[in-house]
Each structure stands twice: as C-alpha cells, then as structure tokens.
Design a protein around this nucleic acid. Structure first.
Lengths: 339, 339
DNA sequence: ATTTTCCTTGCAATCGATTGCGCAAACTAT
DNA sequence: ATAGTTTGCGCAATCGATTGCAAGGAAAAT
C-alpha cells in the first residue's frame, strides 16, 4: 500500500508496460484505444487507487470544467437557491462550481472576478453588486471570450446571456393589484436605480399608475439601500406624509417585514389602513402574520437554467451562439397583507 | 494589444531580459530578489496585463489555496450562513472555496468528496449527510494527511477537528424550559440517530426528563427524517395519542412550523394546549405567529471559525497540532410558542 | 503477393509556473 | 590583499497530465 507519492498515469503505464499516452487515452475512453486495453487500464487504475490530478489535466487541456459564481450574498435565500440550482445541474455534467460573494461591494466583486479568472474557470455566472457601476473587471472575461452569464442583476454594457425575471411586469402587476383592491395613494420603496431590477420594477409601478391616470407623486417614491434600517426609515417617512399612502410596494420582503413591524408598533392595521407587498417570496413571507403578499422569483430554476445555458455555451465554443436574454415570468402571490 | 495568447512569466522575462525564475520570484515578493528588480517586474506585469496561471502554479507547488466544502443543502439557512462565514474568512487569507451539496445523499456526498480530492483542495470542511454511515470516502483525505474539519454533523470514526454546538445541553435546556413552564407530557420529534446532533439532542431531552424523575415514554419519541411530510405525520401521531403531549421539542424549525400549522388546522392553542420548540432559529421563526421558541446556532461564526482552523492547520502542516473539538454554546430563545 | 487502409499504440513536446542548486559579483572581515 | 560571506540571479528539472504526429502490424483490397 503506497500512501506517500501519488499514483500517476506513469505508474500505471510502467506497471502495465504500456505508454502513458495510452493510459491517458484509455482512462478518457478514447475510441482510438481498443476496448480491451481500456478495460485493463481502468481496472488497474481502480486497483491501484489511481486519482487523476485534475490540475495537471486542466493545465494542459486549458479547460477546467469549473464555473465561477459571484453573488452579493450567499446567505440570502434567493441566491442560495439559485446556487443550489447551478450546483445541481453542473454536477450532472461533471462541472465544479466555485462560489464567492461580493457582499454587495464593488471592490470585493472585482477581486472575486479576477480570482476566478486567474483560476481559469470556463465560465462566469454573476449577479452584480449594488455598487457595480463599471465593467472593466467583467471585460476580462468577455474580451477573452470566456462566457459570462448574468442572472437577476446584470450589467447592461456587457453583451452576454442573461436570465432575469420580468421585473417590469412584476412591478406593474403589484401596483395594479393594489389599485384594484382600492388603494389610491400607492407608494414605492425602490432600490438603487443602478440596478436594472429596481429600475424595471419602478418603471412598472409608474406605468401602472399612469394606466389609471394617477399622477406620479415623487414623495411617494423612496429610493433606499433596502437594508433593515434604511427600509424602516423610508417607510417611516412615507407614513409621516400629510397624506400617507394606503398601499406600499416594497423593494423586497425584508423591507416589507420592517414596514409590517412599524405598522404593528404604530397600531396601523394591515391591510385595512395600509396594504403591503414585498418582493422575492422569502421563506418567512408565507408564515408571518399577516402573511405577506409578494412576488415569487424562481431562484432554483434560474440557477439551473443558468448552468444549463453556460455549460452549453462552454461546450460549443466553436459555434457562434447569439446572446440571449431569458425573461422568466414571476408569480404574484396575494396574501393577507394586501387582501 | 495582445488578446490571443496569454501573457506568461516568460513573456515578462524576455521583455525585461531576465530569467523566468527571477520573474516568478519577483512576483512572489521573494527576498532573494532585490527590491529594485521586484518593483520593475511587478510594474511590467501590471503594464502588460499579466495574469498568473494559478493552475500551473498549483501543479508545481502542490498547493491550491482552495478548500472544499460539502454541505447537505446550500439553500438551508444554517448552511448558507456557515458557507458565508467560511467564504468571508477564506477570502481574507487568499483562499478559494469550492462548494458542493450532497442533498443528504450518501452517494452524492462520496462523489463530491472524491471530486474535491481530485481537484487537490488543501482541506475539506464538511457536514455529513443524513445517510452517511461509512467513512471510506473521507479516509481518502485523512489517509493522505489532508486536513478535514467537520462542522455540526460529524463522522465519529474519523479523527479530526470538529466544530459543533452543544446539542446535548440544548436538548436539555429546551426540555427543562418546557418542564418549568408546566409541561408534564413532553414529546420529542427526533432526527435520524445516525447523526450525532440528533442523538445528542435526544440524550439531553432524556436527561432532563430523568432529572425531574419523569419516566421516558417511548410513545412520546418520534424518529423522523424531519421533512415536512414526515414531520407532520410524526406530530399527528403524537397528538392522536390517548394522552397527547402538552409540549413538543421538534427536531428543527421546519418541523415545528408544520406542527404549528397542524395545531391551527385542528384548533389547538399554542402554547396553551401544546407548547412548541424548534431548533436552528430559521429566519421565519422570529416573525411567525405565534413566534417560535428555538435554539440559535451560530452558523456564520461556525463557518468563520472552521475556515480559520483549517487554514491554520494547512499553513502549519509541518507541526503536529492535536485535533480539537470545539463546542460552541447555543442560545435558547423563548418566544410565544412556549411562553 | 503486393499495395492500401485501418486500427492501436508510442514518442516527445507542451501547458505555465516553482524551486534546488550553482555561480558570479559585491561586500565584510582578517 | 586574501579569504569568507552575503546578495542577486539564472539553469534546468519538475509537477502530471494531454495531444499532434508518426509508426508498426493486421486486415482489406487489388
């Protein structure tokens, strides 16, 4: 039993009195090697406990069968489900996944992207940070023809595949729903306009208002970082207006949650005095009281699809596949907070 | 502007009319190279847009500065926060993290572990699957002296570092709390005994009962896979007993949640008729109604600590550091469901 | 029987870095 | 001035695979 030096194809080769090239090919099921030798080699490999050194193979073949993933935060449910989807599909294709989080900081995102590049990942799946207002780091990939795929939050200046949800329509549907249930003064706590998703949701909100001839009132639009603190402050400002809103479309579920807390502290009845709608369908949204209306984004599916698309592109790198923007539908989930 | 062939240290070398070794050393800030040449080389590298090929470096140096992580599911909050902690610390030390999920399946776990080995990760952080009843795949690491660190769920037959929470005491505290609030018939929905965590929690539960001279009644102990379905069935069985429990210690928060739903459907008052306690402090637990008593496990901290310990061990591989079991305290959080 | 083709396999270069060893120049000590 | 150190750098081997090219033998074709 050898435990010290690793077993390489050369060891197998000498043991079997054949060349290393044959061993290599046999292990890769290359048809140029006879069925018989292949069996013998693979058998021996098993027997000797051979473990391929992926590093060496990758160096030579200039492929790593690895895709890099960058998300703002791993521990946010939407992103962790997306990652789960990515991992699940990638695994079926024998791809590894390296994950890093930007913590919504541009500098860290740049660093992550560069590290992934240096590690020669075959493709990059990324949802950009809230601060990302430049694309130099991403060009590192696109300029070198390494596939990038954005999901949810994308960088508009980079040509690439994207998988997003229909944020515009979601914002529209949310707002229409609020109007239909009788709300007349509908406010919106939006996220940073830098991000497509927030811009689109807000645009949908405005479109819906206009469709009913309701004037857009800037005082009803709060732009916020959507953290707990900022969200609460924004909501407090809204509710302190002379004519406080009777319906609020919150940028995400956590903001809606703090809004709910605010209402409970200030004895505001939800949805009677003010209806609330969030975004993302966090696990808690269905089970809080009152349960929270929201929009479901198919996180797992987006990740799964993202992995599917990028791996397909990686494996067909010779053929030119036009870039595609896939827009997945969302599902408006009406619960107690807006019923 | 060269976009085709990558820039290597050799390009830098010829450009600067020095040897590749010097370039390599200069880029690594080796003191054997004069401060001056180092500056010149690094400057040139920047200028030419040099990107180190980590693969080549890793192959030669037999280190990858990468740690592999295997968890049952990425999208479970406890695990995603742990991963977040791992990633955060690893990043400060220039380590990459490859993440894979076993989906609580032994076969997939084995495959993940082998893949990570083949990729020559410098260390493995793992929380084993619910099915893991063998350790051959893990010996691949321990036999080759590659550090393994278990967190939360560990494999008792492998000597290694572990980071766990005090499950025994948590189970004990939970049960004592239920007794102190007046419960006399306390049931427990436990997870598979294969896992240390569930065994320890159950042991704590039994110890607490015995400390008060309450006989342990097997009918009050349900062993379950803790899925939504199994959890609900287990809880239903408990509540259908001739003497249904007046307090239930659920194996995790999701089980407690389905128990809660069951109670609502059957008009059972929580906590008056039956008090409920979960485990893990999922994000929803604080915000549901009634809010759920539970035990907080410091996921992020465990991950952070895990990364810290394993990287320390990797970087001091010559010195023999005794294996350590770190037991982190948990925090019993008493909320409405058991007040 | 001879030529052509096919099927297997081996040779040797290569991927892009790291690193032990050695050598010269510069510097210090005697 | 000479011997002994130190400093700075280059040579060449190496890590463990992949792969283009070629070669040898067997089978097929003529």
């Amino acid at each position: 039993m050898r435990t010290h030096s690793e077993i390489t194809i050369h060891h197998l080769a000498t043991e079997l009195k054949i060349s290393a090239s044959t061993v290599s090919r046999a292990l890769n099921d290359n048809k140029r090697i006879s069925e018989n030798t292949r069996r013998i080699v693979q058998q021996k490999a098993l027997e000797m406990g051979y473990r391929p050194n992926v590093l060496a193979a990758n160096l030579r073949s200039r492929r790593t069968r690895t895709i890099g993933v960058v998300v703002p935060r791993i521990d946010r449910h939407f992103f962790s489900s997306a990652i789960s989807g990515i991992e699940d599909y990638a695994w079926t294709k024998g791809f590894n996944v390296i994950i890093s989080q930007s913590n919504d900081l541009l500098v860290k995102e740049i660093n992550c992207v560069q590290t992934l590049y240096n590690n020669r990942v075959d493709g990059l799946i990324i949802s950009i940070s809230m601060q990302t207002d430049q694309d130099k780091h991403l060009r590192l990939f696109s300029d070198n023809h390494i596939p990038i795929l954005f999901f949810d939050r994308f960088c508009p200046t980079i040509e690439s595949d994207r998988i997003v949800v229909d944020d515009f329509n979601s914002g529209y549907k949310i707002t229409r729903h609020l109007m239909e249930r009788g709300c007349r003064r509908i406010a919106h706590i939006a996220g940073p306009e830098l991000l497509n998703i927030y811009k689109a949701r807000k645009a949908g909100y405005i479109k819906a208002l206009e469709s009913e001839g309701i004037a857009v009132d800037d005082r009803y639009i709060e732009v916020s970082g959507l953290t707990n603190e900022e969200g609460k402050q924004a909501f407090a400002r809204l509710m302190s207006l002379p004519n406080p809103p009777d319906g609020v479309f919150c940028g995400n579920d956590t903001t809606a949650l703090v809004a709910l807390e605010y209402c409970q502290e200030h004895n505001l009845k939800v949805p009677e005095e003010v209806a609330l709608i969030g975004f993302s369908d966090e696990p808690f949204s269905a089970v809080i009281t009152p349960s929270l209306s929201t929009v479901r984004q198919p996180g797992f599916e987006m990740g799964f699809l993202a992995a599917q698309k990028i791996i397909h592109r990686i494996q067909n790198s010779k053929s030119v596949i036009p870039f595609e923007e896939i827009v997945l539908p969302t599902q408006l989930i009406i619960r107690a907070s807006s019923k």
